[in-house]
Design a protein around this nucleic acid. Structure first.
Lengths: 181, 181
DNA sequence: TCATTATCAAACACTTTGTTCGATTACAAT
DNA sequence: ATTGTAATCGAACAAAGTGTTTGATAATGA
């Protein structure tokens, strides 16, 4: 990738992040991003088609990192110590999220988080779906899945607003308020 | 209130609701609402200052109904049968929500629900905050409160997408996946 | 060195927003 | 039934934002 491209992309990401910390996503205009990044109008549009596209790519960049070394699920079908595995993985993810907290807390704060959360939940669904198969209950699986995903996503969002807790704390909070405990 | 005002207000609400069922909140323009409601531009702005204001008022109208006969919390400080009270109240609210499901399912579906959910959660906080005082735990109260509120709000949202369940079903789902059970 | 290509500035048509105006018409109260 | 009030209308307006196109300039990588 061209050095100029990298610089521009980075300038746009920084500008966007800064703006997200000040106002809600929907109230940010492309014009403001352009001004803040100090680039040309046509340059912005040569990188991203729309503002939504920008958020999507920025989210993917972050999650690609957070979920990068997500352990191969195929191997761990040993249901006996299933619970332990999940807790470990959750804590693991929380550590990665903490690394990105400078970005994340800005993105998730204020009123801007919803779009981002949507992408986040897509990843979480994959993790929780398998886990749910081990639970015996008469509650609909789809309800529980939605419950777990939203629950964890909200926990992270809350964490980013109250960042005085460790990943282990948050993991404990999460599992103590969930039927998986 | 003038009959003309009522008609206009109603036309705007209907138009807005219809549009919300077709596309996301942020992608709906005031112009579209005006066209769909078949009113004059100036008339719209004499009723609502912005699109956000419209959503806020529409949300309040619905919630004023849903939480209308919300039992006086002051009286019921009998902690011994606290759990029973909460379950009763939740089921009660669920019944009211079901009455408004035609509107709600449209508002909450697609990508439009976040704004609405924000107002919803404001109401829910009031209900759950008192309830939480009865719980003994080392988990931060603010975490649990956020957890409960988001949990219930998400449950309702899920319900509106899967409306084949009764209020009693939903109440059971909710309490079976919560530490209040 | 050289071909490539990212950036730039400027201009463009287009949409949306929110306001203002005077004319018209429906309303509620007497 | 009459009358004063006020809601609606339609048209026009400035301001701001969107997304595209242009040709010139300059940085890049090979």
């Amino acid at each position: 990738m061209d050095r100029r491209q990298r610089k521009t992309r980075s300038a746009i990401f920084d500008a966007f992040t800064k703006l997200l910390s000040e106002k809600s996503y929907s109230n940010i205009t492309v014009q403001e991003i352009i001004d803040e990044a100090d680039i040309s109008r046509s340059t912005f549009y040569s990188h991203f088609e729309t503002k939504d596209e920008l958020l999507r790519e920025m989210s993917n960049d972050i999650f690609a990192h957070v979920f990068s070394d997500h352990p191969a699920k195929e191997k761990s079908h040993d249901f006996s110590r299933a619970d332990y595995d999940l807790k470990e993985e959750i804590t693991h993810i929380l550590y990665h999220l903490q690394d990105n907290s400078r970005y994340l807390s800005r993105i998730l704060s204020c009123e801007s988080g919803e779009m981002f959360m949507r992408y986040f939940k897509e990843y979480l669904e994959k993790i929780f779906r398998d886990e749910l198969k081990k639970i015996k209950t008469d509650i609909p699986t789809e309800y529980l899945l939605n419950h777990m995903v939203c629950d964890f996503a909200e926990t992270v969002r809350w964490w980013m607003k109250n960042d005085k807790f460790s990943p282990e704390d948050i993991s404990r909070f999460f599992f103590s308020a969930t039927p998986f405990d």
